[in-house]
């Protein structure tokens, strides 16, 4: 993670780093127990009263439930300063929350990836904006 004071998320309300560590911004429904990511992607259990939905942060760490290595550059609107291909995309499972979340895999030897690998949430800098801030997204890396 770069200089946290000079970072801005390309799209807000997805990843939080205000406590010094990167955590995904989820919501939990207290009525049906379902976690949502992104926060607005509500997927309530049928018949749920939808009462008591609150903002929560997902744990920092989870386990790799699946992954792929993408060899072709993703077309716009994706944007990075440098060509990042080939890049990994992981599906990381947060066991207690019963949710798997997708994200770019960074700072990890892609050949070493295995299902079940312990992963942690981090921040990936994609490019600098006109205000010279780092424009960032969330990403996952293997825990060392």
């Amino acid at each position: 993670m770069g200089n946290m004071t000079n970072m801005v998320a390309r799209i807000p309300n997805l990843v939080d780093w205000s406590t010094g560590e990167a955590r995904l911004m989820s919501r939990k429904c207290d009525s049906c127990g379902t976690y949502f990511f992104p926060r607005e992607h509500y997927q309530h259990r049928p018949g749920c009263s939808r009462e008591g939905v609150k903002d929560v942060l997902l744990p920092k760490k989870g386990k790799l439930a699946s992954y792929t290595i993408q060899y072709y550059a993703c077309p716009p609107p994706f944007k990075t300063e440098k060509n990042i291909t080939p890049y990994g995309i992981g599906l990381v499972e947060f066991e207690n929350e019963k949710i798997q979340v997708a994200g770019i895999i960074t700072e990890t030897d892609l050949k070493s990836l295995k299902l079940g690998t312990e992963m942690e949430t981090t921040i990936l800098s994609m490019f600098a904006n006109e205000e010279k801030q780092e424009v960032v997204t969330w990403a996952f890396r293997a825990v060392k």
Partner: peptide, 24 residues
């Protein structure tokens, strides 16, 4: 349009989804 998030933040064209399921 929530679809924009996967393009700007996670770089996931459609085949990525199929690959994630295929690996499982």
């Amino acid at each position: 349009d929530r679809d924009v998030i996967r393009w700007k933040m996670t770089a996931m064209p459609n085949p990525v989804y199929w690959a994630l399921e295929c690996r499982k």
